[in-house]
């Protein structure tokens, strides 16, 4: 139920994000979801791609620092209250979200929320018990 996410270190200088996306595009790797965390001094790019292993190899060869982490993808209806419900479940269970980002599926009926937890296994149990739909890595990659 966990999804592979790549994290790439971004030095705070122009053209770094462009260099990463070019390396991926040159190798026909498709980005499914993406978010950038930025601070005053550096950034962290987080990506879900259609071929994690290949992307890792390509980026490492390009001299980037790459890390792989497990995240959880949750599907909710794309309407008011979709995110709020999931967050209230997590809050009641006392689970802390390290970070999250979201995107809307092509069909536009559903939205996908990507969550990073300290302990993803506990989070999966809690979300499933609340009847929330969790997507597999395969499902996310094929969106």
């Amino acid at each position: 139920m966990k999804v592979d996410q790549l994290a790439v270190f971004l030095e705070n200088k122009s053209g770094r994000l462009a260099a990463i996306t070019k390396a991926l595009s040159d190798n026909s790797i498709n980005i499914r979801a993406l978010s950038v965390a930025d601070t005053a001094d550096f950034g962290i790019l987080r990506l879900i791609v259609d071929d994690t292993d290949k992307a890792t190899r390509v980026l490492k060869e390009g001299g980037f620092t790459v890390g792989k982490t497990d995240v959880i993808a949750v599907e909710v209806a794309d309407k008011p209250g979709g995110l709020a419900r999931v967050l209230s479940v997590l809050h009641e269970a006392g689970l802390n979200v390290e970070y999250m980002y979201a995107f809307v599926e092509k069909s536009a009926e559903n939205a996908v929320l990507i969550f990073r937890f300290d302990d993803p296994d506990i989070a999966i149990t809690i979300l499933q018990n609340a009847g929330i739909r969790i997507l597999t890595g395969q499902e996310v990659r094929s969106i």
Partner: peptide, 18 residues
């Protein structure tokens, strides 16, 4: 330089390192 060993997907970890 940020080596793979130092790197984290979480901002707070890198900030703590600094």
């Amino acid at each position: 330089e940020v080596s793979e060993q130092l790197f984290s997907d979480e901002v707070k970890n890198l900030e703590n390192l600094s």
